[in-house]
Design a protein around this nucleic acid. Structure first.
Lengths: 349, 349
DNA sequence: TGAACTTATGAAAATATTTTCTTATTGATT
DNA sequence: AATCAATAAGAAAATATTTTCATAAGTTCA
């Protein structure tokens, strides 16, 4: 694995690009002399453009991390196409590690994760820290931190606020999605979800928040639990719901807690002869499914999956560098974006 | 304001400390040669001990920030001792800026903050970014980001997930505090709060969460609104409550959403002839009040106020450096700690 | 058992960066 | 108009850091 021989950029290259002397660049970078705003901007822009700032930044932190243990529970393994979520996250993480020259030692398979297994694997690899994805059980976290190992959770949260974590801003994102439905005129909305971990219930919280924030009667917020997050389960849940209620009733929109569920729901709705979005609107969450390719294209919430891994790495670096157990644990929530396509319309009047 | 002439540490000093050659240190730091785990550790430890790693880290980021506008709404001004919260945060922030040589231009007083005022002030100071404390109104955020200025919120949150922010982990912390009360045996708990911003309602969420997580009847969760967060208002609210209900009734513990309220509550309870914690337990939140000096000493939740400013600065730096509007907004929650003192005991049986 | 490798470390050469000091320009003050 | 002070930028000297290459010590294998 050899990088293209992109020769390192230095302060010299920046000075040429910005048309100033080498020393001037140094002065700008260190604030060791008065510099006019104009030149300062020119230099900084050049430095950024050439990737000098980024390189410098990388070099400063890279030091701390040599080997990182990546613990992946079986159900996050991207064995089936279903778990595109984890796959995307892990993929971006792997690439970032390669880029930075961090050795990533995976621990996966071989039955359920236990603190013992993780600690042993970390010792064996003499890892500087641990990244743990999709698993935030208390016993696990206790076991690991008792061994004095530094850990960052990806797509999880430590309720005891001892361990750093990165997760999507589920609650706000779900509220934003529901807000959008409400703004289109929907008042009776079904939230299709499943009994997942706390990070999934946050989406339900946000769904409810939106009703409160918009002063809409909470009686319009309906919740339906599917058996899991696979498309088939969403399909079954919606089919059963349609049957029980003899059609969608007052409900004019379905907000699904995952794109996969939304795909299943759309199948069930179409099978029941309902038009999307004419008769009923559907909204997803995650932005991983090929929502663009189904018909109608799925309106959804885009989660910045590609940024979760790198951010986790960054938290781990800072933790290793600081090496200060007094420092408060950090929980990082990444903002999500609405992706508006065709599966949502105003309700029939 | 002159730093003690602590001469800069370099790779040379590290090599001496770690008893290796200069080049070896360089190799460790850059991964440019195979290094034994033993030497690697020795070098890294030495580098950390001497503050070399920290210095390097600082240097890498300092570049991006020269001038920062600090916008402080009137009600966060530390004019009265009441707002020890803001005072502590601002104090730590100021010191961090001094340490790093960042120029901090305050914008405060002169009536309510408006987007226009902030944008103009930022332009005038040619600020690289804005720190906004205790104010996250939508119009304000829209106005600022429309002007293309980078902003980080301190003790606030952007529901639209466009702007980075730092805040305490209010929800989990409140749950932790309530958990503690429940673990001592309390089942009927009063949450004393006020109509604050969303960050305050998060504490109420956590209070409720604890009942759910512990499978305790939610009928035991009582909420009482004070007129504000000053001690006097807590005192009045509790006095009125005691009067209305002819004593505390079944309630055996009061969890206050702020230390100031707790101090007031304690005064009202004592005035009513109740013993703390014999008759009723009291728990605070914030860890700023002189809870250690009151009698009995106040059990509370310690919020890492000193870290909020520096973390906000760090977010701003990264944002300026990346200069990538595609990058998702980040919301950083800092973990809090339980401080156990004397004001909480098991309820009378 | 000794040639061929591999792993570790350091000395010295090659680079990169910072600091000091000089010079130019502008505007204010006598 | 001459002088001074403040602001900007750069040349050159002083340092700091990285890289290349040499060497030692162990390992493997025919």
């Amino acid at each position: 694995m050899r990088m293209p021989p992109r020769k390192k950029v230095g302060i010299k290259d920046v000075s040429r690009e910005a048309q100033v002397a080498i020393s001037t660049v140094s002065h700008v970078l260190n604030g060791t002399a008065p510099i006019s705003a104009e030149v300062r901007t020119r230099v900084l822009d050049a430095a950024r453009r050439l990737g000098y700032l980024a390189e410098r930044q990388t070099k400063a932190t890279i030091t701390a991390l040599h080997t990182v243990l990546l613990a992946v529970p079986d159900d996050a393994l991207p064995e089936n196409e279903i778990n595109l979520f984890s796959w995307t996250v892990l993929n971006a993480l792997t690439r970032e590690c390669e880029r930075r020259g961090v050795r990533l030692v995976p621990l996966a398979g071989g039955g359920p994760l236990t603190a013992k297994r993780i600690v042993e694997a970390a010792m064996e690899a003499s890892a500087d820290g641990i990244l743990l994805i999709n698993d935030d059980r208390r016993e696990l976290l206790h076991g690991i931190s008792n061994a004095g190992l530094l850990t960052v959770l990806i797509n999880g949260e430590d309720q005891e606020m001892k361990v750093d974590s990165v997760a999507p801003g589920n609650r706000f994102a779900a509220q934003m999605a529901t807000d959008w439905l409400i703004s289109r005129g929907h008042r009776e909305i079904l939230h299709l979800t499943w009994e997942g971990r706390t990070t999934i219930t946050r989406r339900q919280d946000g769904f409810i928040d939106a009703f409160r924030a918009n002063n809409i009667p909470r009686s319009g917020a309906h919740v339906l639990q599917a058996a899991g997050y696979e498309p088939k389960m969403g399909e079954d849940a919606i089919a059963a719901w349609l049957k029980d209620n003899d059609g969608p009733g007052d409900v004019t929109a379905i907000f699904c807690a995952a794109d996969n569920l939304a795909l299943g729901a759309m199948r069930a709705l179409t099978a029941a002869g309902l038009d999307i979005p004419g008769d009923i609107s559907v909204m997803g969450f995650d932005g991983v499914a090929l929502g663009e390719l189904v018909s109608p294209a799925l309106t959804t919430v885009d989660v910045p999956l590609n940024q979760m891994g790198p951010e986790a790495l960054h938290l781990l670096e800072r933790r290793v560098l600081a090496n200060d157990s007094e420092r408060a644990a950090q929980r990082l929530e990444l903002g999500c974006k609405l992706v508006i396509r065709q599966s949502v319309a105003a309700p029939r009047t």
